[in-house]
Design a protein around this nucleic acid. Structure first.
Length: 859
RNA sequence: GCCCGCUUGGCGGAACCGGUAGACGCAACGGACUUAAAAUCCGUUUCCCUUCGGGGAGUGGGGGUUCGAAUCCCUCAGCGGGCACCA
């Protein structure tokens, strides 16, 4: 018996595909295109199982579409800028560029060993000047279009990485990469005006029909649109120095304006700062608020506190009503206008604040059926829908109408207007790091901010940098900053901030369409290939990367770049790869290959047989040591085994548990296929041999199974039900191995079945399938063979098994001709002994017949 | 607190639009082959009862709609995710 030689076989076909350029994509407007893309990896060192899953999913889609006749673009590249390269530089004294390049070489080889159908001629790396020069140009265009700007602002400062983080990169008050608690600092930063397109980003979510609902909801929440009104309150004592005489607030409840009893401004509000200059008590209060931080538990436990600044403002509608102004620790400067009016009767937080500071509670909305004379607010604010009262011109209106009426009156009297406010904030793109794309701007004492002239692009990173000192190596560099001002020629300095690495990943997908073009995007290529038809990656990018990319395409479009608005028309978010965790008696984590099953089925340590406790199944991570190295799996079992396991065990969007037993199972299946097809029980006819005139009953049944499987697997692949597709192929395999007989008909059907299985497995286990295809006698490569088609006549059975129920309970089955009429079905059902026994021969009250499915006899 | 999602055998998971629950696999058990083991092959495997013909229960709990519910509705519980001093 010839054993399946995985290593040789996989290497052989990989070399041949490469030699023949099987996966090279050529722009060909005459053919329908399909662009499938997996989120490109950060070159951290070696590939991990998450990559294997991600790229297997992408590859099955790419190979399937290619077989279906699409002109498929399936590229790969490297998200090569980032912190780990700098950390490596600090720890191992290796230049980030060298470290990155070596990692890319390692990982490219690992990916190639997986047999992924990439067009490697389009490979890009974002740390190459040929790549990032385009984004420097984009930035200059954004600057000219007013989409990029610089301002001083409070930033999230990561004290470990010594850099600024975007809000999206702060998770539970800690840096997303370092995990260190984030501090607040005030710095001049570059921003992209993503809020400019907030409404468009929100509204267009509707058009993304092939995105998971979950992701759409997350983006919707993140953008966080609130409809309300701006209300302008005039200070009674006249203007505050350096500010003006009005304080603007945003509210979603203009209908409750008559219930207002105070104004609260943020500690960071300019008016608060101004007043603090002459009030040490206020300054102290503001300092206390700042110290509180933004971590979750700080917010939970923090008491709502206010400081009466001694000012009052006029109510916009009530002559003579004056409201006190507080600085309050719960008002955020970053949202709305940094100030709110308090309506204690209809907002729980305002109510608590009012109780604490003895402010009036004035109910102005009551439930429709409540008696106005008796309706009162005690400890709970009334936030429900109802009727407005005690409110002059709003009296009697329902809440929704009162909101509109109040906004209208505000506008008429010049005291405000209806407004929409977003939670989304502009994207801070400055990072104080070396290993990123330099921001192409020069600071000149005389001219201010001067964009680097296009002719001088790219601004490249200096090679000779030191990482010994903390902070930004670019700022610490002795000469790199020094440059003459392009405008006035005097000595000036370069901007030393680099871009957030999400900048690079916000347009790479479009660069793949024309990766070597002189301009960023070649118009014809972009118009042909974009958008990405199927994008595949982790759910962790549901907001960050996917939202930035959607913004970027729009911003680029405004600047005249040839690019579509929505970059990804289909999105698949795959689940994580998990594994059991193991610990020794001292609680130390152990790698899976450090443990084994011992005598009594207990897990023990390989080294010394010491007992091991099995922990929860968790996401593979280095910290828990529950990782399995893909390369060692591929060396042992081959890429096809790893790929098929990735597909077979769980639906792609769910988490997958990696198990040795599961891998073994797939390995057995692959060897079984090999034996079955290379040593068939009957001698197979030549490829393309004429179909026999007659088939035995068993052979005919097998043919139906073959064609049904083709149809079902095709259907499953279309819907990404890969685990089901694998199950169906296995089912057919079982059926073929049960097919007996040595007639010419059986032999012919056997070949038909083997070929079907081989072709259906092509996208999943490409090397095995290619080898089997050749051994089945085909000269043409399987990758060049079209997807099989099911014969329509064979996927419809002549007879069907119909369930027979009595009062909804299954009592037996009957076999009927397909589409038999109801009377025939009913008669056959009633003739069943079991039906007669249970009904005790009483006539049924009713008989429900669902054709080809069920007959329900109601007694 | 608000918003989403999930809950099916020992395990991963199937089950189309409300129509035979448990496909396919893993694990386990029994058997064949073998001096033995591995590999392979054949069987059994939701639970309970059984006179071996069958019978009963069953998709997180409770209730409802329906001839019929894993699937639809209400409600409770558990798990997971997102957002959150958001005005």
């Amino acid at each position: 018996m010839t054993r399946y030689n995985v290593r040789e076989t996989e290497a052989k076909w990989q070399a041949l595909w490469e030699e023949r350029g099987s996966f090279r994509a050529a722009d060909d407007p005459a053919r329908p295109k399909y662009y499938v893309l997996e989120m490109f990896p950060y070159p951290s060192g070696r590939i991990h199982m998450g990559h294997v899953r991600n790229y297997t999913l992408g590859d099955i889609v790419a190979r399937y579409r290619r077989a279906c006749g699409f002109n498929v673009l399936h590229p790969m590249g490297w998200d090569a800028f980032g912190m780990p390269a700098e950390n490596a530089a600090i720890e191992h004294k290796v230049h980030p560029g060298k470290w990155t390049a070596e990692n890319i070489d390692t990982m490219r080889a690992e990916l190639k060993a997986m047999g992924l159908s990439y067009d490697w001629s389009r490979e890009i790396s974002t740390c190459a000047p040929e790549y990032y020069r385009h984004e420097q140009k984009m930035f200059l265009d954004f600057l000219a279009a007013g989409l990029a700007y610089r301002k001083e602002s409070w930033v999230n400062w990561d004290p470990v990485d010594e850099t600024v983080l975007a809000n999206e990169q702060v998770i539970d008050g800690c840096g997303w990469r370092s995990g260190a608690p984030v501090e607040r600092r005030r710095l001049a930063q570059w921003f992209l005006r993503i809020t400019d397109v907030a409404d468009e980003l929100l509204e267009s979510l509707e058009s993304l029909e092939r995105w998971p609902d979950k992701v759409l909801v997350m983006q919707e929440n993140w953008i966080g649109r609130s409809q309300g009104a701006h209300v302008s309150f005039r200070l009674t004592a006249g203007p505050v120095e350096g500010w003006g005489e009005r304080i603007d607030v945003f509210t979603t409840r203009p209908d409750t304006l008559f219930g207002a009893s105070f104004l609260a401004i943020s500690p960071d509000h300019p008016v608060a700062g101004q007043l603090a200059a002459s009030s040490p008590e206020l300054a102290a209060f503001i300092a206390t608020c700042r110290r509180l931080g933004t971590s979750e538990e700080a917010l939970e436990t923090a008491e709502k506190q206010g400081f009466d600044v001694g000012l009052t403002v006029r109510h916009p509608f009530l002559e003579g009503r004056e409201l006190p102004v507080y600085v309050a620790n719960f008002v955020l400067m970053e949202y709305g206008s940094g100030a709110v009016f308090g309506c204690p009767a209809h907002d729980q937080r305002d109510l608590e604040f009012a109780h604490k500071y003895g402010l009036p509670v004035l109910p102005v909305v009551r439930p429709e059926d409540a008696d106005p004379a008796e309706f009162a607010i005690a400890d709970e604010a009334f936030i429900g829908d109802g009727v407005v009262f005690n409110s002059d011109f709003l009296d009697g209106l329902p809440v929704a109408e009162a909101k509109r009426a109040a906004a209208k009156r505000l506008q008429e009297t010049g005291q405000g207007e209806g407004a929409v406010v977003y939670r989304l904030r502009d994207w801070g793109v400055s990072r104080q790091r070396y290993w990123g794309c330099p921001i192409p701007v020069i600071h000149c004492d005389a001219c201010g901010l001067v964009p680097v002239p296009e002719a001088d692009l790219p601004v490249t990173l200096p090679e000779d940098v030191r990482f010994e000192e903390p902070g930004n190596p670019l700022a610490n560099h002795p000469t790199w900053r020094k440059v003459d001002c392009p405008t006035c020629g005097k000595a000036a300095t370069r901007e030393t901030d680099t871009f957030d690495t999400f900048f690079e990943s916000s347009w790479y997908f479009a660069r793949f369409c024309s990766p070597h073009a002189e301009e960023a995007f070649e118009r014809a290529a972009s118009e042909y290939w974009m958008p990405v038809d199927q994008y595949i990656g982790g759910i962790e990018h549901a907001v960050l990367h996917l939202l930035y990319s959607r913004f970027f395409t729009r911003a680029l479009g405004r600047c005249g770049y040839p690019i579509v608005d929505e970059p990804f028309s289909g999105l698949l978010t795959q689940g994580m790869v998990c594994h059991e965790t193991y610990r020794d008696a001292d609680g130390n984590w152990l790698y899976p290959n450090e443990v084994k099953r011992g005598a009594d089925d207990e897990m023990v340590r390989v080294a010394d047989g010491a007992p091991v406790t099995i922990g929860r199944v968790e996401k593979m991570s280095k910290s828990r040591k529950n990782t399995v190295d893909p390369t060692s799996i591929i060396e042992t079992y081959g890429a096809d085994t790893a790929r098929l396991f990735m597909l077979s065990d769980s639906p792609p969007e769910r988490d997958l548990e990696w198990t040795e037993a599961g891998i073994e199972g797939i390995w057995r299946f692959i060897n079984r296929l090999w034996r079955m097809m290379t040593e068939p029980a009957v001698a197979l006819p030549a490829p393309g041999a004429a179909m026999p005139e007659r088939f035995s009953e068993a052979a005919a049944a097998a043919r139906r199974a073959i064609h049904k499987t083709i149809r079902n697997v095709t259907d499953d692949l279309e819907k990404f039900h890969f685990n089901r597709a694998v199950a169906r192929i296995r089912e057919l395999t079982n059926e073929l191995s049960d097919l007996e007989g040595d007639g010419a008909d059986v032999a012919w059907v056997m070949r038909e079945g083997f070929e079907a299985v081989t072709r259906l497995l092509g996208p999943m286990t490409p090397h095995l399938a290619e080898e089997l295809w050749q051994r089945l006698g085909h000269a043409e490569l399987l990758v060049d063979t079209p997807w099989p088609e099911a014969e329509a006549a064979l996927i419809v059975d002549e007879t069907v098994t119909v369930a027979v129920q009595v009062n909804g309970k299954l009592r037996g089955t009957i076999v009927l001709p397909r589409d038999a009429d109801s009377a025939e079905a009913e008669a056959a059902a009633l003739a069943l002994p079991a039906v007669a026994r249970i009904s005790e021969n009483r006539p049924p009250r009713k008989v429900i017949v669902v054709p080809n499915r069920v007959v329900n006899v109601v007694i």
